[in-house]
């Protein structure tokens, strides 16, 4: 029997093809400095995509993370910048706001059976508006040095932020594979009624999936603020689309019940390489959309081919 191709085949093909093409065309692309930049830039999307993987695995979708990120960024800016809180409590409070937002949408989805896209659409609108109400539309750039150095420091040749993202992925992978919570998430995605009947606390698990996603949006907000050295109310706009794209590109089916954290990691990296490549060609960011749209369809086709292959070997 032929060995089965892993789920990540599609995204791996795209990542390798894009990297190889760019490495051949642009000598600068082969340098370590470029990978450093790509990995550093990818951290915030990586963290959002890790949470999104869980949400999609549970059969849901969360379009609110970008807005929640913006709200958390402003909370962090207000507390650390204007009210003079020290860094860690301010970060904690900002992440706490993220968790609260996530739990609100989670409650709507799990307890009141509101469709995920509707509940998160409401949070998408409300959290962004909240960020503007809190900030009055201004950005906050008077931030403590310690916070900004978090965004630029590095350890063993990788930015701090990339270490945080890597940690999130390892933890996420462990949660999905090794914990009863992770099993519950996949069970809900596979079939809510079946999960409920087999004794899973479906409401609690589903609420916390969105809570965790909010937490990660808060964490991403800390990174965005630290890297940009400003807290702007517009932070994270459109990042929900990028995060969803990364997850789908990575091979997690949007129908739920399965997921792959490795695939999502590769998806985030592929988006990073593509973005960087488009810029290397001197094209505007709109080309990124075009290439990503095509990449999404290619990844899905590769996935179909992989599954056909598997059926034949069985």
């Amino acid at each position: 029997m032929k060995p089965r191709l892993p789920v990540e085949t599609g995204v791996a093909v795209i990542l390798l093809a894009a990297s190889a093409w760019l490495a051949i065309t642009f000598p600068t692309f082969r340098s370590g400095a470029t990978s450093y930049v790509i990995i550093g830039n990818a951290s915030e999307i990586a963290i959002l995509a890790a949470g999104m993987t869980l949400v999609i695995a549970a059969g849901g979708i969360d379009v609110s993370v970008g807005s929640v990120l913006g709200l958390c960024a402003i909370v962090l800016g207000k507390l650390a910048g204007e009210m003079g809180w020290s860094i860690w409590p301010a970060c904690g409070a900002s992440i706490g706001v993220g968790v609260a937002c996530g739990l609100i949408t989670g409650t709507l989805v799990a307890r009141f059976a509101v469709p995920p896209i509707v509940a998160t659409l409401a949070m998408f609108a409300a959290a962004r508006a909240g960020a503007y109400v809190l900030s009055g539309g201004d950005s906050i750039s008077q931030l403590p040095e310690g916070l900004i150095s978090l965004g630029y420091g590095s350890l063993f040749g990788m930015p701090y932020t990339a270490w945080v993202a890597a940690g999130v992925f390892v933890l996420g992978g462990l949660v999905v594979r090794r914990t009863s919570f992770g099993r519950g998430v996949l069970a809900i995605g596979g079939g809510r009624t079946a999960a409920f009947l087999s004794g899973q606390p479906t409401q609690r698990i589903e609420t916390w999936v969105y809570g965790i996603n909010g937490l990660l949006a808060g964490l991403a907000a800390v990174i965005v603020v630290a890297r940009g050295a400003t807290a702007i109310p517009d932070a994270g706009r459109f990042s929900e689309m990028t995060a969803i794209t990364a997850v789908v590109l990575g091979g997690t089916p949007v129908t739920g019940g399965q997921c792959t954290m490795t695939g999502t990691t590769l998806g985030v990296l592929a988006i990073g390489v593509i973005t960087n490549g488009v810029r290397a060609y001197g094209k505007g960011d709109i080309w990124v959309l075009l290439v990503l749209g095509c990449a999404l369809l290619v990844a899905v086709e590769v996935d179909r081919w992989r599954r056909r292959e598997r059926r034949r070997t069985e």
Partner: peptide
Amino acid sequence: VPVEQYGLVTGGVIVLAALTEQ
């Protein structure tokens, strides 16, 4: 009200509509 803050009301109305539907 500044344009950026409309979302608070839109979000509220969406939730209200979804709960009514339930």
